[in-house]
Amino acid sequence: MGEQYRVVALGGAGAMGRPVVEALAGRADIAELVIADRDTAAAARLAVKYANASAATVDASDPVRLRELFRDADLVVNTTGPFFRLGVPILRAAIESRTHYADICDDWEPTLDMLAMDAQARDAGVIAVIGAGASPGTSNMLAALATRELDTVEDVHTAWPVDVPFVGDDPADGAAGGESAAVVHWMQQLSGTIRIWAGGAPAERPPLEPVRLDYPGLGAGTAYTVGHPEPLTLPMTCSIIRDSACVMVVKPETAAYLMTLREEIDRGSLSLEQAAAAIESPTAGRFARSALRRLSLRGPGALPPFFALATGVRDGRPCRIGARLIGSPRGMARATGIPLSLAAAQILDGSVRAPGVHPPDAVLDPERYFEELSAHCDPPRTGRDEVVRVDRTP
């Protein structure tokens, strides 16, 4: 038997954590999988399903308990949010414990703070892969496939679906999932200002700005910006000389309603939690204000639901390369948690060797990533080509 590891699944009993636990529990090289969660009963119920799992109680805001939990672990996989509150202190505890780390952070603000901890991680010999979920995560891997075909990269956009049909949809997810941490996060990233890449440099912009994109072989459509880490991390792995943003593929009526909520959040008349609740229970007044705005908005047109699109130059000619997801684990929780387990696998088997804080596309092998993702799709696929399709202008 080869080397054996102890892995801590922080938040492992939660919606995002359970798919990670399920995927990692079957690995022969994990001697102990610690399901660490503030919900002790849920962690215990999940742990009894797997021979190599145990349960632990943890408050993710307690740095002393985190260091104690991480001290004898080889790897921490973190699905505990919201990351704009917990991402930095949890990564700090992992670095101080000299424990490798991977998470699903999808907030751009703590992404910057965690990237700034790169020197600390390198000094401690810690590998940290942040934002290894769906978006960011799978989106970064799609961008890696698209940009590597260009000699010069001008623009890169990553996109994910809100209310358009997608192969990974799960009816059990509902329209918005209630006042979950994910929806509160979404409201934060649709209010205030967000960080994008514009004119070859970081820039502050309001969210929900329309972006017209022309996807090769399918056609054009309009998507809307959202605050996500990809525009901050993609320029670290390829030289983007013009623009990059993360956008939502969303119907005009939904975009209009989100704009109405954004105005109320920015005025201070609506908290993030109240805005999350208003997704599920819209009022007649907000509907009316949204209806007027909707008349001026464009829709997604021919855009696919989940993709990365890179424009630039190849062999001296202008070129557009798109990479789109055509197979996926079903539901938001699995589509986010399974990618984290794939990142963990590349850390555990030594494929990722460089200490430091990294975005996924800086250290993960995209070919292997999509090959392994195929086995976790619903229904299972048989390889990379059944999960991702790369499209090119002639």
Rank of each mutant, 00 (worst) to 15 (best):
G174R: 10
R98P: 02
A354Q: 14
T237P: 00
R324K: 15
S281T: 12
S139V: 02
T382G: 12
H228K: 09
A28E: 10
A116I: 10
A323V: 10
A291R: 15
G337V: 15
R45S: 11
A288D: 13
K49Y: 01
G299E: 13
G331I: 13
L373C: 03
L75D: 01
L91K: 04
S244L: 08
I279V: 10
Y369W: 08
L295P: 00
T80N: 00
L342Y: 09
P19F: 13
S54F: 00
P136N: 10
W108E: 13
V153E: 03
L150V: 04
P380F: 15
I241R: 14
F287L: 09
A323S: 14
V247F: 12
P19S: 12
Y215N: 01
D391I: 08
P282V: 08
N78Q: 01
R6N: 05
A31I: 08
T193N: 11
A119W: 09
I338A: 06
D59Q: 01
T158N: 00
G301D: 07
P231V: 05
R242Y: 07
G17A: 09
G268K: 15
Y215P: 02
S271H: 14
R122Q: 15
D113I: 05
A288R: 14
C238M: 06
Y50C: 03
H376L: 07
R85C: 00
R242S: 14
E367M: 00
L342C: 06
R67E: 07
G14A: 10
P210V: 05
A181P: 05
L309R: 07
T283W: 05
E386Y: 11
L292K: 11
A9T: 06
S244E: 06
L348E: 09
A56F: 03
A333K: 07
P380C: 11
A31M: 10
L69W: 02
D74Q: 01
R27H: 12
R242G: 06
A94S: 06
I127L: 11
